[in-house]
Nucleic acid binder design. Structure first.
Length: 938
RNA sequence: GGCCGAGUGGCGGAACUGGCAGACGCGCACGCCUCAAAAGCGUGUGGCCGUAAGGUCAUGUGGGUUCGAUUCCCUCCUCGGCUACCA
């Protein structure tokens, strides 16, 4: 018998699979497309993490299972190599990002090809490939033309160490996601995508998605829809302005005619708790609130100016997360609560956020933050909600307890005695009727900040023309836009039940966009030049801004001197559409980007010329894209739950935008999303700082891909992850060696038998066993493994196969059918060893991998084993006998003849063990679960 | 603080809709093989009492529902992930 040499058979079969292209479906002609997608990795670290191997081989096991079930499985792989992660890694190792990308790419593809996955390598992609990012840029332009990309000056998170702008999502606990530095606030002009326009659609589609529930919840929370009310508080100069006046004068003030304030000077606040409005005793403004700004212009109050400036400089962390001390300053102003005409002080405080609601809130006794703030500054409070529990209500009214739940209103004028819920409704009505505010919906979701002042990303494909700007011109009033008929572009806004609500026309106000033009599409891509000073300098601009040969250009409209945008786009944009690109890619040898890069001395003209080489055939690519849409939405998408919000949300947004662009007729990219678990080591998350990161290379070299794959399947449930341990992997190697030996022994003894029929070796082929038990076992295992794989319960599928092995290895004869079936069931998990052994089995006594007609009889192309439901029934079943729910005895009966209650009950009562417990007692009740259990209650 | 998970032998984990808790594997012990070891094979393996038959206690804690709870409900504790002053 040959020894089991995993590495040798890997080389052999990999070559064969590659030659026969068994993992490269013809995208245009297949009948049962199954797009089996895993989140592509960003290759910034030293190499592939064993956690990624866990995920990728798990996804592949599912894909192989589906292929054997007759689906045309498409399983592509690529690299998310553009962006801040990769650039930071390049910074760390002191290598040019492009050079590093080349190295990472080589290493990653080497590793990825060694794990035994059925990747379609003819369609790989890298986000830094100009053939890829020309489309990233194209998408940007399409969104710009539809008014979904816009520019605004905004306070942004700035990491002083990475020297870049970060999105809110990249700021963790006020620190930079990558380097951990404390993040500062800066004001910069930035490009944004209007994802908030899609908030309602993104939210309403969630129930329809076949996704892991927790990911759906995370998405819903991230969108964070809140229905509440806005209330207008008219500003008064002093408290007396209201309090000291008679009713008629009060009204005047409120109506805006009293001097010197008028109705335009009001503060609009947002609340979800309109029921507590009567108890509002102060107003809090965010330091960035416009009222504060106007106040500062007219105010001599140095104290306020100082406070606001300090807070604005403060980082998120210093401003303090919940629980930390709140700070604030009184403005000297008062505001009139429209519902009760009370005049209440207006404060500025750091716990009010400009980014949420209206940037202003009212404080009351039923919010813990408000109470904490009020107590600190001695602001009075008034409880207006009670619970009905007398003792508790006493405490609440004495302000000893802060009650934040729904209750019954007290001391709230005409609203007293209403429930919170009723009151919210009535207050909203009142405000609407009296034009003092009204219902309002707010979202936690913010627009997507796209700009990055970095090097390693796709240049944002926009041109700014100073001269056009001076004339108030932009692309939106150019001839081009009229040709594209942009003004008539509209998209549908749907309500919750999917009903058409209205058509939203994009109305362009060119104010913000004056001077801006997209790069003409035929000039794409805007190649990222190969500059040497690529490191971020912390000047708030991209390194490309130091390269006039890059940014100097001509205006597409007037032909005058113009300037390219020098920022690059967020890496989340690269990954928001890659699943489309796998399908659109023609099979071609893509030159590595460096070959297409221009050098930094090239002129602008050369940039454009050189791109012609890259563009390829737009129409062809778009055409393929459209044809292949049958592959979408992605059938199965598997990735980490850490991407639950951002990546998945951005991908959904881009897909919806594609639909609105008329490119596709669906709006959700992933029919099914499954979140896998994490592999940990010694009960701790793997991390470099802990020094417990596992490099799969050594395991692949030592044990081979099959052993590692099978071990990772067995280590724990796919959605939970598992604890990686060397002793476990040894056990798995033993198992595969046993399988190897069993199959080879059987084949060998068969060969012996046919040459000398008298000699019966054991175990051997043959039907001689002639028992139904063997067939029942096989059918049960087939069903079990099939169900487990379908539900991605790989660990229990593996256990069932081991159980079956244990059974087979103890039999005198093992049939050829059993061996074949065993190998087929194991094939998705361990593709190499099963291919080798399967070929041995079918070759015995005759047969070969390549049949006469030239087709390849790979185990991976065999139909998945089926089972006969009839054979699942057990020959005999064990009936457990309980007395008062405690197991006292058990016996077996023939399942077909002896499972009626009367017979089982009779037999159970005959048992001496049972008699002991029921003798002389009255049986109150008998519970019988057919074929399982009988329970006497005495 | 909020949301989502998870707590089961020495360890990783099974138990799918409430029905024999501990499948399968690791580890350990003993045995076979061997001059010996490794590998391999076999047997056993939750705690306690008992020679045994058997009994009894056991799924983080405390309660509840049920003939019966790892599973359902409530309380609390611990750990992990995501998120975070969202008015």
């Amino acid at each position: 018998m040959k020894d089991y040499k995993p590495l040798e058979i890997e080389v052999k079969w990999k070559k064969m699979w590659d030659e026969k292209k068994i993992y490269s479906p013809d995208l245009d002609s297949v009948k049962r497309p199954f797009y089996n997608l895993m989140m592509f990795p960003y290759p910034s670290a030293e190499g592939l993490h064993v956690g990624s191997v866990f995920t990728f081989t798990g996804v592949d096991t599912y894909g192989r299972f589906k292929r054997m079930q007759g689906f045309d499985v498409f399983e592509p792989m690529g690299l998310d190599g553009f962006g801040i992660h990769s650039e930071n890694y390049a910074l760390k190792v002191g290598r040019h990002p492009k050079e590093q990308a080349k190295r990472s790419e080589e290493n990653f593809y080497r590793q990825l090809s060694s794990i035994g996955n059925g990747f379609d390598w003819s369609r790989k992609l890298e986000t830094y490939d100009p053939n890829y990012y020309k489309w990233t840029q194209w998408i940007f332009i399409q969104l710009f033309k539809r008014g979904l990309a816009y520019r605004k000056k905004a306070p942004v998170n700035f990491c002083p160490s990475c020297k870049t702008v970060l999105s809110d999502e990249q700021v963790i606990d006020g620190k930079c996601e990558r380097c951990g530095s404390v993040v500062e606030k800066r004001e910069l002009e930035q490009w944004f995508f209007k994802i908030t326009d899609y908030a309602e659609r993104l939210l309403n589609n969630i129930p329809k998605l076949n996704w892991t529930e927790k990911v759906k919840i995370a998405q819903r929370d991230w969108i964070g829809k809140r229905e509440g009310t806005t209330i207008r508080f008219v500003i008064a100069r002093t408290q007396n302005e209201v309090k000291g006046t008679k009713k008629s004068q009060k009204d005047q003030i409120i109506m805006g005619s009293a001097n010197p304030r008028n109705d335009s000077q009001y503060i609009e606040v947002f609340t979800t708790r309109g029921d507590t409005l009567y108890g509002a005793t102060f107003i809090v403004l965010a330091p960035e609130h416009p009222v504060v700004a106007s106040l500062l212009r007219n105010s001599e109050l140095e104290k306020i100016r100082k406070y606001v400036e300090e807070v604005k400089k403060k980082t998120e962390i210093e401003r303090g997360a919940q629980g930390k001390e709140k700070t604030g300053v009184f403005t000297g102003l008062y505001a009139i609560n429209p519902i009760n005409n009370e005049s209440i002080p207006v404060w500025i405080a750091d716990y009010a956020l400009m980014g949420y609601g209206t940037g202003a809130l009212f404080g009351d006794a039923h919010d813990e933050r408000d109470v904490a703030f009020a107590k600190k500054y001695g602001i009075p409070l008034k409880a207006t909600l009670i619970t009905g529990d007398k003792e508790r209500d006493e405490r609440i009214l004495k302000l000893e307890e802060c009650f934040t739940g729904d209750g019954t209103l007290v001391d709230s004028g005409e609203f007293s005695r209403l429930s919170s819920q009723q009151a919210r409704e009535r207050v909203a009505e009142w405000l609407e009727k009296n034009k003092k505010g009204g219902r309002k919906v707010t979202y936690h979701l913010r627009d997507w900040l796209i700009s990055r002042q970095r090097y390693w990303g796709p240049p944002i494909p926009m041109i700014y023309c100073q001269s056009c700007a001076g004339k108030g011109r932009s692309w939106f009033n150019s001839i081009d836009s009229k040709e594209e008929n942009v003004s008539s572009i509209k998209y549908k806004v749907s309500s919750k039940d999917g009903k058409f609500l209205n058509t939203k026309y994009v109305i362009h106000t060119t104010d913000d966009m004056v001077g801006w033009y997209p790069i003409p599409e035929e000039d794409l891509p805007v190649i990222l030049p190969d500059v040497q000073d690529w490191r971020p300098e912390g000047t708030g601009v991209s390194p490309l801004a130091n390269h006039p040969e890059f940014y100097k250009t001509t205006c597409p409209s007037c032909g005058g001197k113009a300037r390219r945008e020098t920022d690059v786009s967020d890496t989340f944009l690269d990954s928001a559409w890659y699943f489309f690109r796998y399908l659109a890619t023609e099979i071609h040898d893509v030159p590595f980007p460096s070959e297409g890069f221009i050098n930094s001395k090239s002129t602008n003209q050369q940039i454009n010329k050189s791109t012609n080489l890259m563009i390829g055939n737009w129409k062809l690519e778009i055409g393929n894209f459209a044809k292949r849409v049958k592959w979408l939405p992605v059938t199965m998408y598997i990735g980490g739950a850490e991407h639950s919000v951002l990546h998945l949300l951005y991908s959904r947004f881009i897909t919806m935008a594609f639909k609105d662009l008329g490119l596709i007729d669906f709006e959700e990219p992933f029919a099914r999303f499954y979140a896998h678990g994490l592999i940990i080591k010694d009960r701790a998350k793997m991390s470099k700082s802990k020094g417990n990161v596992i490099n799969p290379d050594e395991y692949l070299a030592k044990y081979g891909a099959d052993v590692l794959r099978a071990y990772l399947r067995f280590v724990g449930p796919f959605d939970m992850g598992g604890d990686f341990r060397d002793s476990g992997i040894e056990g798995m190697q033993r198992f595969l060696k046993r399988v190897w030996r069993l199959v080879n022994d059987v084949i060998a003894s068969e060969a012996k038998q046919s040459s000398d029929p008298k000699e019966i070796a054991s175990p051997s082929f043959g039907e001689a066993r002639n028992d139904n038990e063997g067939k029942r076992v096989m059918n049960r295992i087939i069903k079990g493994v099939t169900d487990d794989l379908e539900a991605l319960r790989f660990n229990t599928a593996m256990a069932k196969l081991m159980t079956w092995y244990n059974y087979l290895s103890q039999q005198k004869n093992v049939s050829k059918k059993e061996l074949e079936t065993f190998l087929k069931l194991l094939a998705p998990i361990a593709p190499f060893i099963t291919e080798e052994l399967y070929q041995n089995v079918i070759a015995s006594p005759e047969g070969a991998a390549i049949s006469d007609d030239g087709s390849f009889r790979s185990v991976h192309l065999q139909p998945w084993p089926s089972y006969e439901p009839k054979m699942l029934e057990e020959g005999e079943v064990t009936i457990v006998v309980q007395v008062n729910g405690k197991v006292r005895d058990s016996f077996t009966v023939h399942s077909l003849q002896f499972t009626e209650q009367s017979k089982v009950e009779k037999k159970a009562k005959e048992s001496s063990k049972i008699k002991k417990y029921i003798e002389g007692k009255k049986i109150k009740k008998v519970i019988y679960v057919e074929g399982k259990i009988i329970n006497f209650v005495v």
